[in-house]
C-alpha cells in the first residue's frame, strides 16, 4: 500500500516537473523586434493624439488655423471678406443702440416737473343738482350762460 502511495507521489512529481519544463519552453516564444518597435510607436502616437485632443489654448488653435488661410488663398480672402462684413454689421448695430433716434432739447426749455405735478385733475367739478347753467331768457333775448352779462 505504502509502496503504491510512494509511486503515486513520484508520478505526480514527475508530471509536475515535466509540466514545468514545458512551461519553461513558452518563455522562448519571442515576438519580432520590428513588430514590437512598431507597437510602441503606435502606442506613443495614440498617446500624443489623446493629449492633443485635450483642451488647447486659443493661441495653439490659431496656430493651426492660420496656415490654412495661406494654403487656400481664395477661401482665405472669402473668409476675411465675410469677417469684414460681419464686423461692419456688428458696428452699425452697436452705434444705433447707443445713439437711438429722438428729439433732443435742453432741460431749461422743458416744462418743469412741479408745474405738471400741480395739475390736480381734469375731471368735471362736482356741482349741486340745482346749479343753474343758463339764465332765464327775458323777452326776445337769447339764452346765455348764467352770470353772463352783455358789455354795455
Amino acid at each position: 500500500m505504502s509502496e503504491n502511495n510512494t509511486m503515486d507521489i513520484s508520478t505526480d512529481e514527475k508530471a509536475d516537473a515535466l509540466l514545468n519544463q514545458l512551461m519553461r519552453l513558452k518563455s522562448y516564444e519571442t515576438p519580432e523586434a520590428a513588430r514590437m518597435t512598431r507597437n510602441k510607436q503606435n502606442i506613443m502616437r495614440q498617446v500624443r493624439q489623446a493629449q492633443s485632443e485635450q483642451r488647447k489654448p486659443l493661441l495653439d488653435r490659431l496656430e493651426i488655423s492660420m496656415p490654412w488661410l495661406f494654403a487656400e488663398p481664395k477661401y482665405g480672402i472669402a473668409a476675411l471678406f465675410i469677417a469684414f462684413i460681419g464686423l461692419q454689421y456688428a458696428g452699425i448695430n452697436a452705434r444705433n443702440s447707443t445713439t437711438s433716434t429722438g428729439i433732443y432739447t435742453t432741460t431749461s426749455s422743458l416744462a418743469s416737473y412741479e408745474a405738471v405735478a400741480n395739475i390736480q385733475s381734469n375731471r368735471y367739478p362736482n356741482l349741486p343738482r340745482d346749479y343753474q347753467l343758463f339764465g332765464q331768457p327775458q323777452g326776445d333775448q337769447t339764452v346765455v350762460p348764467a352770470g353772463f352779462e352783455f358789455k354795455k
Binding site: L18, Q21, L22, R24, L25, Y28, E29, T30, E32
Partner: peptide
C-alpha cells in the same frame, strides 16, 4: 497566432531533457 521560438531554446536544459 504564435510568436516563433527563439533559437536559444536549443541551448536550454529543459529542451534537451524533453
Amino acid at each position: 497566432s504564435l510568436d516563433s521560438f527563439d533559437q536559444d531554446i536549443k541551448m536550454d536544459e529543459a529542451y534537451h531533457d524533453l
